[in-house]
Amino acid sequence: MAKVLVVTSGKGGVGKTTSTAALGAALAQGGQSVVVVDFDVGLRNLDLVMGAERRVVFDLINVVQGVAKLPQALIRDKRLENLWLLPASQTRDKDALTDEGVGRVIAELSTRFDWILCDSPAGIERGATLAMRYADQAVIITNPEVSSVRDSDRIIGMLDSKTVKAERGERVEKHVLITRYDPARAARGEMLGIDDILEILATPLLGIIPESQDVLRASNVGSPVTLNNAESPPARAYFDAARRLRGEEVAMVVPSERKGFMDRILGRRAA
């Protein structure tokens, strides 16, 4: 039986799609069969980040409405044979999704995959609630800033009340993934600290992804960062997060600024 995981945040632009692609690819590289599902109907991006935009024929809406069969809409990744994409429709809007239709698609996907990663749209409306609806686990993407943390708090509240698991009296297993963490700015006290974020959200930490040009470079070439440059700091952080999702104990590394030579000799300015 597949694990259904929703990647969500409330706020936009924090890295949900990037993280879905990176975690999906990392899990697939670990030998799991993975499908990433784009729920951002009308504003799809996951196909671009996965580099599959030119192979989209059918999409989630077509499958939900019964126009296409699931195997027709699934796109296999060119680099990893056990990584699949179910794209969203760009021309429709989120009202085209139905609770019952999404449930049917998730049920069908769970017979074929180990992991179903649902890339939630931003916001708290229909698309976001349906993306989390059938989730067993949730990864809440948070940037170290107050607006993102408050939106995450709101989303956690919805995960505890609006999901099928919550309505059955069970709990969605929740993890916080902090992205765009800038060690230099953190050192200057310009960002919310990790401890503050975890204290506010009262949810266990899955990982800390450092802010990096590697992420942008990877999405520009249509590749999850964990595939594009597996040795880069963000990729390594995503690999660790993926291993934690599979239940492994991996020591948490808080990214720190690597001091260059000039910093070392001119690091401290006298008053």
Binding site: I124, R150, D153, G157, D160, I200
Partner: peptide
């Protein structure tokens, strides 16, 4: 017993409310 999250509203007009966790910004 659980934190009250942003956007949640707890209304109890019959008496005291005790929250063991935190009450989030916007709750």
């Amino acid at each position: 017993e659980s934190p009250v999250r942003s956007g949640q509203s707890v209304v109890f007009t019959d008496g005291d409310v005790t929250v063991l966790g935190s009450v989030g910004s916007g709750a």
